[in-house]
């Protein structure tokens, strides 16, 4: 049996908003450790992995590992009906049923909404995600997640919004990270310098560079990842020319959301 409770729907609402526009289905793995979610986009360019440890929930009972594929668009629709302070209960029975029940209960007026979701196939996930060696990454950038979101918005507004294939080039050189994109009639570059931690100790931009690195990514993916900002104040971007880039948001003490994305390479 699986029975979970969260006294505030916000966390789960934010998780769904952070993944549902790019990923249509996800695999949810519940175990004694917590919830591990994985999803891959249809072009197989990006993968998202989420961990919410059991401690993230107000009540967590999972006496047997349970893996289920769920449609994220349907879930996001249901969660948009939930208020931030609704109490969420997630329940699944033994193997014979292939549905999971999400219940939203309003603490103020006692209204209860019940959604049953059927399991779906997930095309390729879950995958085993190794911890790639640190030495493989040429550069790591840590910055406030709101700043990263602002950068993505600026780049998107400059690039032709109708073009799904706008490319952003992220390059790291010494104590600077540059975001570059090309619009219809010009280019746009946003330069971020490493900030002095003394001035704003809570919102530093930190750049660790082993070697110069410059990689091209799809802007619409990056834009979508930036929605992780509702889950964490900081984002860490790890760049390597040999591995998928990682955009990581730590969720308080209870987990993380990591987006893996392949850079575009010259043909």
């Amino acid at each position: 049996i699986l029975e979970l409770r969260l006294v505030q729907a916000t966390l789960f609402k934010n998780v769904l908003e952070a993944i549902s526009d790019l990923f249509s289905k996800a695999n949810f793995d519940f175990s004694g450790t917590g919830l591990e979610l994985q999803a891959m986009d249809t072009s197989h360019v990006a993968l998202v992995a989420l961990l919410l440890r059991a401690e993230a929930f107000n009540h967590y009972l999972c006496d047997r590992d349970l893996s289920m594929g769920l449609n994220l668009a349907d879930m996001a629709k249901a969660f948009r009906c939930a208020n931030n302070d609704d109490i969420i209960t997630i329940k699944a029975e033994e193997d014979w049923s292939d549905t999971v029940t999400f219940t939203f209960e309003s603490p103020e007026d006692g209204e209860i909404s019940i959604f049953d979701f059927d399991f779906v196939g997930t095309n390729g996930v879950p995958l085993e995600i190794p911890e790639f060696p640190e030495s493989e990454y040429q550069a790591k950038v840590r910055m406030p997640s709101a700043k990263f979101m602002r950068i993505c918005k600026k780049l998107s507004s400059f690039g032709d919004s109708g073009d799904r294939d706008t490319v952003v080039i992220i390059s790291v050189d010494k104590e600077c990270v540059n975001f570059f994109t090309r619009g219809k009639t010009g280019t746009s570059t946003i330069v971020c310098r490493q900030t002095q931690t003394v001035d704003k100790p809570k919102e530093p931009t930190l750049i660790e560079m082993k070697e110069q690195v410059s990689l091209a990514f799809d802007l619409r993916y990056m834009n979508s990842f930036s929605k992780g900002s509702t889950l964490s104040d900081q984002v860490t971007i790890s760049l390597s020319s040999n591995l998928p880039a990682v955009f990581e948001y730590k969720i308080a003490e209870t987990g993380y959301i990591r987006y893996y994305m392949l850079p575009r390479i010259e043909e």
Binding site: P130, A216, P244, M261, I265, E267
Partner: peptide, 14 residues
Amino acid sequence: GTKQGNIMSFFKKV
């Protein structure tokens, strides 16, 4: 032009 590989090649099937 540019192309992209398949991210699955970096991970193993569970």
